[in-house]
Amino acid sequence: MNGEDNYSYENQIDIIEDNVNVTKTSDIKEFFILIGGIVLLIFTILFLSDLAMRFFLDKMTYETQTKIESFLTLDALPERTYSENEQIWLNRLNNINNKIIAQDDELKKLKPLNIDISTKKEINAYILPNGNIYFTTGILNNLKTDEQAAFVLAHEIAHYKNRDHLKSIGRSILALTTISIIGCGSGDLAHKIMYSIYDIGDLRYSKRQEIEADRYANEVIKKIYGTNKGAIEFFQLIDKNQKLPEFVHYFSTHPSPQTRIRLLGN
């Protein structure tokens, strides 16, 4: 360049070694910090929702509970005639129910729970928010002793007594509404992940409820029959029928039968 140029650059040219436009951090570090923040946030929301539900529902009277449940009468099975075997089972289950109620004064305050049979083939028993307990044909075909049936029945009654159904519904409404509000504008993907983290928290919560119900049922059959053999046998039966690897139960609402046996053993 000659000296008449008003811009001389040759001595000034240099490659800038440091790229100031890109922050010196790794994406993976950023990823873990942000995911950690989201997990903490969602679990705090779940914890507070759980706390709020416990605060209101544990104080609630049984009359109010019955009133609320009358709005939640879902999936009631249509009336039908029972086979001879089903009738025998219903009588047997009602007798066991009376024994369970007799050993716990709290249960006497609850409204009478109706026991029914659903014709599904899967091995299952469940209680609806209105207090109707259903045993599937599948479970009845596999239950061998009264102790086993008593454990299953006491487990379902424990859910009702603990108001697990109302707590779950209330907690879900509260937590999901909060997540939906705070997640607005953060994009579909972030929202989807928030719900997935919520699902994981929900599975943990559900497992805790199941363990609590197991503990109660375990105590009940120990009081009635003097042993918890029925509980262990029942879970061995479930384990034999499911044949699922342990890790699958991480994604289930129930702990694995092996875990449940171990916890009852303790």
Binding site: V22, E30, G37
Partner: peptide, 22 residues
Amino acid sequence: TFVSAFRNFFGGRMVSFESIMD
């Protein structure tokens, strides 16, 4: 995209986009 979706939520420098822009 995933990382930036959460950065979008918390706010702050969108580090993962900086390299794309650069």
